[in-house]
Simulated assay, not measured.
Amino acid sequence: MEGRVFYVSLSLLLFLLLIALKFHLSTKHKNSSLPPSPPALPIIGHLHLLKRCPVHLTFYRLATKYGPIISLRFGSRLVVLISSPSPFEECFTKNDVVLANRPRLLLGKHLAYNHTTLVQAPYGDHWRNLRRIGAIEIFSTHRINKFVSIRKDEIKQLLIRLSQNSLQNFGKVELKPLFQELTFNIMMRMVAGKRYYGDGVTDEEEAQRFREIMREAVSFGGASNPGDFLPILNWIDGGKFVRTVTRLGQRMDMFLQGLVDEHKRKEKDLESMNTMIGHLLSLQVSQPEYYTDEIIKGLVLVSTPPILIS
């Protein structure tokens, strides 16, 4: 048994050494065409620099030392740090198409319908179609103004809730969770016509499922998986992270499909159609190739705060 463990450990060590050698050679070969870069460690590159908090101060110190454009290696991924207005503007004007794509992380595969949502999709015909739908049918001034009564009502309910806490005397209130609930309620009333937080919840069981899904989604927000930068970690953990986000993606899809199906059953109810899902389903009738259920669910997905900022 001890001999077997020794050979497994030796094989793993040799594998890591080969990766380190490959990384060193590829970095050395490419350095001539890349912006200046701090000294990197084998395999992990510059990830060790991110242990200092807050991160923006770390980036500021690096920019002060190495210049306004720096190349960093986060594991297997190349990152270019820009801290000057002029090259930053050039990136989003002259080179906006080149830099339009987002990194293909595991979260995008399992939570964003295999990188096909507006936030995750690569630049191309599909992305342009989603952008057109978003600009005209969801985020246009006309569509946003149709929901002004929802925003006013939710703000009014928040103010009433705050005033009740201070009827007798001054009260201490933590505003952060209240603002989070306000944001979710506004978004989900616009999307599906339902409240999931505070008083007047539409369906307590459904609201509980939504809150659990959003809580888990928030915990995975941003670049939360080290295996996206060091793929070997996905192998070492036995696929635990992949299984977790796969299950979350399935639960989220079932929840969103339930909202879509419910709107389909109520399509003759004018009130139910005064939602984002209802409006998109009305367009599905005349343009089914553009407004499939999956595209509608993806548009709903990027309208919820934790996924939008991921």
Results as ranks from 00 to 15, higher is better:
residue 176 K to I: 03
residue 169 N to V: 00
residue 200 G to Q: 07
residue 180 Q to T: 13
residue 190 M to E: 06
residue 180 Q to E: 09
residue 179 F to W: 09
residue 224 S to I: 07
residue 192 A to I: 06
residue 217 A to G: 08
residue 209 R to G: 00
residue 200 G to W: 11
residue 168 Q to R: 13
residue 176 K to Q: 09
residue 221 G to L: 04
residue 173 V to F: 06
residue 203 D to E: 10
residue 229 F to N: 00
residue 175 L to P: 05
residue 195 R to N: 14
residue 183 T to G: 05
residue 204 E to Q: 12
residue 169 N to H: 12
residue 193 G to Y: 07
residue 211 R to A: 02
residue 168 Q to F: 03
residue 213 I to K: 06
residue 175 L to T: 00
residue 205 E to T: 10
residue 206 E to G: 05
residue 214 M to H: 03
residue 216 E to V: 13
residue 224 S to M: 05
residue 215 R to Y: 13
residue 199 D to C: 02
residue 169 N to D: 15
residue 227 G to V: 03
residue 195 R to D: 13
residue 193 G to P: 12
residue 216 E to Y: 06
residue 227 G to S: 12
residue 192 A to W: 03
residue 200 G to I: 07
residue 169 N to S: 14
residue 187 M to C: 11
residue 173 V to C: 09
residue 173 V to H: 09
residue 215 R to G: 15
residue 166 S to F: 09
residue 185 N to K: 05
residue 173 V to W: 04
residue 199 D to G: 03
residue 214 M to N: 08
residue 190 M to C: 15
residue 186 I to S: 04
residue 189 R to D: 01
residue 226 P to A: 08
residue 215 R to C: 07
residue 227 G to H: 05
residue 170 F to Q: 06
residue 195 R to F: 11
residue 218 V to H: 07
residue 221 G to H: 07
residue 211 R to S: 09
residue 211 R to F: 03
residue 183 T to W: 01
residue 188 M to G: 01
residue 187 M to H: 04
residue 189 R to A: 01
residue 189 R to C: 10
residue 192 A to Q: 06
residue 223 A to S: 11
residue 196 Y to T: 12
residue 198 G to F: 14
residue 181 E to V: 01
residue 215 R to E: 15
residue 218 V to N: 06
residue 174 E to K: 00
residue 206 E to P: 01
residue 190 M to V: 09
residue 182 L to Y: 08
residue 180 Q to D: 06
residue 192 A to T: 12
residue 219 S to F: 08
residue 207 A to D: 05
residue 224 S to W: 05
residue 211 R to C: 10
residue 179 F to P: 06
residue 172 K to C: 12
residue 172 K to P: 00
residue 193 G to C: 15
residue 181 E to D: 15
residue 210 F to Q: 11
residue 221 G to T: 14
residue 177 P to Y: 09
residue 177 P to R: 02
residue 196 Y to C: 09
residue 207 A to K: 04
residue 190 M to L: 07
residue 176 K to M: 02
residue 181 E to C: 12
residue 230 L to K: 00
residue 183 T to H: 01
residue 165 N to R: 15
residue 215 R to S: 15
residue 197 Y to A: 01
residue 191 V to A: 03
residue 190 M to W: 03
residue 195 R to K: 15
residue 206 E to S: 07
residue 195 R to T: 11
residue 225 N to H: 13
residue 199 D to N: 14
residue 186 I to D: 09
residue 192 A to Y: 06
residue 226 P to T: 07
residue 172 K to L: 15
residue 184 F to D: 09
residue 221 G to F: 11
residue 217 A to H: 02
residue 188 M to E: 08
residue 180 Q to N: 08
residue 197 Y to I: 06
residue 191 V to I: 15
residue 175 L to D: 01
residue 185 N to Q: 09
residue 173 V to L: 05
residue 175 L to I: 14
residue 225 N to M: 12
residue 190 M to Q: 11
residue 218 V to L: 14
residue 199 D to I: 02
residue 170 F to T: 14
